[in-house]
Design a protein around this nucleic acid. Sequence first.
DNA 1: CCATATTGGTTAGCCGCCTTACTATAGCAA
DNA 2: TTGCTATAGTAAGGCGGCTAACCAATATGG
Lengths: 174, 174
Amino acid sequence: MGNLIPDESIRRTLLSRLSEQVPDFDFAAVQLSAQLLMFSQQTIHLFENHFARWGLSQGRFAILMLLYNLPENDWTPVKLAESTHVTKATVTGLVNNLSRDGYITRRQHPGDGRKISLRLSESGEQFVQGMIPQHFERISQIYSNLDGQQIKQICDALALLQRAVTPDVAREIE
Amino acid sequence: MGNLIPDESIRRTLLSRLSEQVPDFDFAAVQLSAQLLMFSQQTIHLFENHFARWGLSQGRFAILMLLYNLPENDWTPVKLAESTHVTKATVTGLVNNLSRDGYITRRQHPGDGRKISLRLSESGEQFVQGMIPQHFERISQIYSNLDGQQIKQICDALALLQRAVTPDVAREIE
DNA sequence: CCATATTGGTTAGCCGCCTTACTATAGCAA
DNA sequence: TTGCTATAGTAAGGCGGCTAACCAATATGG
């Protein structure tokens, strides 16, 4: 629910005060950034709420999906961390909770004593099998009001933004 | 850095496996949702990195801005929570850290023993004063590659999305 | 063959978000 | 006035991110 960005009215007052202090204040850019932040938070919340239906988070879901759909990959914590772009410490935490909940199991990796082999348990498999159709149905529903042309329009806008911002992101992260 | 969404190649394999299992799998919608999630996370990371320059988070920044620019508001934790759309417990945490860092002070509210009056300290004021111009300059810079027409295009796309999704969001949160 | 470096995984601890439960003060109504 | 209710704030504890530090096991190279 929380997005940390004040409402329109406060925001307007804030911006007008700020524009007095900052000489070359770029209204359009600042407005845009607030829009984007709010939108992004909204999107993430949407998915969080969506996943909460099944007691999942994005991270839990990602791991379950990988284990379920690509079981031939012989998943280890490090592989999961690379595939999901989080640190291995974070994976440890997610795996702890998922195994506490009985969805996955840790086994010694045959052949490399350092590695841990992760697999879905019986109940984990059933759980994923049960949720997948609902999950994708709901996802489709969320965007079902958009036709192909509109989706293209949105993708174009995202691409435009990404192109425009990317160099700065790179500089930012440096 | 982490976004929890696997790379293109894994994602493609995943989606093709899934489309076999889910009868009426809506590729476009699922692709769009992944795009949106990634984009949103990227945006939020961009701002997190931006704020990290000054040891700030979105929440810390929001509170400092409100205290600095609207001091006449006689801020209390509850007011801040309402204005920033987070819980009052979260505000307690942020305020704890901000006051530990010497940026803000808590005082008893004269006239209502339940309330706490929050103000910027001397050093907090100086700090904000120093960062504001840099902050807005950088924000402007990030989006400086976009012209007015492009910004409009993006805003239109966001609005389109918001209109399309809103009813579902409402249903989702219910 | 052994010493060193690299890799895999966990732990500990911080942050910011949440919910739930609690205390203290204020307000209101009988 | 007294006693219930509503409001303000904090505390405790969970989650999922992170970094830094650590141990164990493997790889490597002299």
